[in-house]
Nucleic acid binder design. Structure first.
Lengths: 143, 143
DNA sequence: GCAATGTTTATGATATATCATAAAAAATTT
DNA sequence: AAATTTTTTATGATATATCATAAACATTGC
């Protein structure tokens, strides 16, 4: 019954992937969540983003990002140095330890993606991606 | 950068849909979450499922379902009557109030789906669904 | 320079996700 | 029947999602 509903399949696909991916990371003894990994990846590229900008990049909201940053900092994967020109903000830098963890996780992520997409052609992936983007676009609030 | 990753698009599509759908339900003044709605819908069809079976239906885990059932019961949308033949379980029935809420939400859900899928043909939806199911299938744990 | 406005971060409240485990009850084995 | 195993539910711990709001700070307009 629910199987015939597209959004159920959508939810199931991403959650299946997440469970599988997280299980593989855990099994490798790496202490990081997929979401934390994503945030660190973004911060590796840009260390001058506001929480709101980070949130946009990873499609989360600012409150979630704030809590993830606090956690990542507590874990020593991220360093937050106050910015001289703005008393509210900090410069966020991935630490050595964070770097090592990212490096260790990277091949696993590639593996997970390959496994999830096994038997699906490049053309099919392109079609899929394009449809997903159209759906996301349709759901953007207008006002 | 992240935009080129399929799983990011996947995550974004379902989260965009959920935000839009929940916002519409909230705006209508209906006090229910999409997840709660889903569980109630399942219970409407079958009132003799274990928490584990419900979890399978809605693709959540038993712990999440347990908490949702407790909440739904507290809210008066669900009644839980002890089963005589099994001291652990209860018969879960959607209450009158739950029924009314489901009835009120239903047209909104149809609206939300239509909006999310605007401009996407039936054939495209079929392709999409089939690909999503293949991905979910690839992620199923083997052992 | 001050008031009003906007931005940025932090956090409270509530809900869900996930793993792990405890506790109770049922089913099975011997 | 008693012991063992399995099933079912509840809950602790931790992480994330979301909305709302507070607090600190920066910026703009006057």
């Amino acid at each position: 019954m629910l199987n015939s509903i597209l959004f159920y399949s959508l939810d199931k696909a991403i959650r299946s992937y997440r469970r599988m991916a997280q299980a593989n990371i855990d099994r490798a003894g790496l202490a990081i969540t997929i979401d934390q990994w994503l945030v660190l990846r973004v911060l590796l590229e840009h260390d001058d983003l506001t929480q709101h900008e980070i949130a946009e990049q990873v499609f989360k909201d600012q409150a979630s990002v704030a809590r993830m940053l606090a956690l990542l900092t507590k874990r020593g994967l991220l360093s937050a140095v106050p910015l001289p020109n703005d008393g509210r903000r900090t410069k966020l830098r991935v630490t050595e330890q964070g770097q090592h963890l990212l490096d260790a996780v990277h091949p696993l992520i590639l593996n997970n993606r390959a496994r999830a997409l096994a038997g699906i052609s490049v053309e099919e992936i392109a079609v899929l991606q394009q449809l997903l983007e159209r759906i996301a676009g349709n759901c953007v609030p207008t006002d």
